[in-house]
Design a protein around this nucleic acid. Structure first.
Lengths: 211, 211
DNA sequence: CCCTAATAACCGACTGGTCGGTTTGCATTT
DNA sequence: AAATGCAAACCGACCAGTCGGTTATTAGGG
């Protein structure tokens, strides 16, 4: 893994993320990618073993970033409630930065070859584990309702946030900050116990007059 | 639209849903579909204008069913809370019946041609509107917290439930009933106002000792 | 009820085009 | 002169859709 600066490789990744997101992996030919950046097919296969390897690169950039940021968020805080909010905020924040990557990540992962797929699957599990650990720790401290199964709660939160890649548009009427606030508010109301609600309130939406 | 019994057309749909779900639309050839059911390519193109038309058929079967069932659920109940619970239950219930269809629906919709895509998009919006209407009605009656934007709440619920198609396995340790209960409990805690919480409690999980 | 005719359902070899990947060649750098 | 980085022509496999033909189904006249 040598240190890259502004190579053809990087330009290929940048261009193909956009193209894959728009039209899907199968509808974007290698010819079109190289034509789009004014390069050649030879240059492409000099930098990537296969079209498949390029897809893996895109996957890895994204999931590795998410894991790194989430781990940092976990370490930075020390209560289950603050950690949960930080994790949710981290995840939604990534959508502003990596929206194309995410679309490719969730729509095209099936096109990965078996070996690449296994690596990505492990990293995905790793992320899930970070979040689930926070939920479980919160249940043990009495901050989160213990009668809710941690696995289902984890997937509910993940699903709620992940689904935004299907409908959130940066050019739309809602900002990601607004969405994050509402999501955090809903999740906290959903799982925080009555006796821990006081700490959670600072992360919540202030009551305003109705719509 | 004549009345069908057990036609080749139906067998093609049944087989291709499974194949598309497993390997993706682009990785399943027409040859493979017809070989899988012991039919021929001529028979296929006698029943479908194109491979694309088959994909549309699969989409339509699913989304039309969801809309019909949801409308019935709405009509059957008369309070926002009971309607919301019925809608959520309807949606999760569909996953036990149409899991393959749903995977195809959410993974392969990009492969639809423009005209088909527009029809499906409208039906999708129609469904979303049914749910969002329930949320808004609940906010007007004071059952649901009015400080939360109805659009975001709607998408949060939809996302939470829809995401199950990515991780729920019928052979896994969790049943869809369990998941539905937890989801309903979480959503009700998240959006029901304090003064309406009494009606919501009957839909919730009884407290049990910790995990 | 039977035979015939017409139509609908179905078959399978073939084609035209596409696309991932290879190969060869040519500059520029070291 | 040897290695690097890229260009462009090329190859072989694959696949949606076609088309001429065959079999099953139905309708109607005798």
């Amino acid at each position: 893994m040598p240190m890259e600066k502004k190579t053809l490789k990087q330009r290929i990744v940048d261009a193909s993320v956009v193209l894959f997101q728009q039209d899907g992996y199968h509808n974007v030919t290698v010819d079109r990618i190289v034509e789009h950046i004014g390069a050649s097919k030879g240059g492409f296969y000099h930098n990537f073993k296969s079209k498949d390897a390029l897809l893996y690169e895109i996957h890895d950039v994204f999931i590795s970033y998410v894991i790194r940021q989430s781990q940092e968020a976990y370490d930075k805080y020390d209560t289950p409630i603050s950690r949960l909010c930080a994790l949710m905020q981290t995840l939604t924040h990534v959508f502003d930065l990596y929206q194309e990557h995410i679309t490719v990540f969730y729509e095209e992962s099936r096109s990965l070859s078996a070996e690449y797929s296994a690596i990505i699957h492990d990293k995905r599990s790793h992320y899930r584990k970070i979040l689930q650990t926070v939920i479980e720790e919160g249940q043990q401290t009495g901050d989160f309702r213990a009668e809710l199964p941690a696995t289902i709660v984890t997937m509910a939160i993940v699903g709620m946030i992940n689904w935004t890649y299907k409908w959130f548009k940066q050019s739309g009427p809602l900002t990601m900050e607004e969405i994050t606030k509402v999501f955090s508010d809903m999740v906290l109301h959903a799982i925080v116990t009555e006796q821990a609600m006081e700490e959670a309130i600072q992360f919540m939406i202030k009551d305003k007059p109705a719509i």
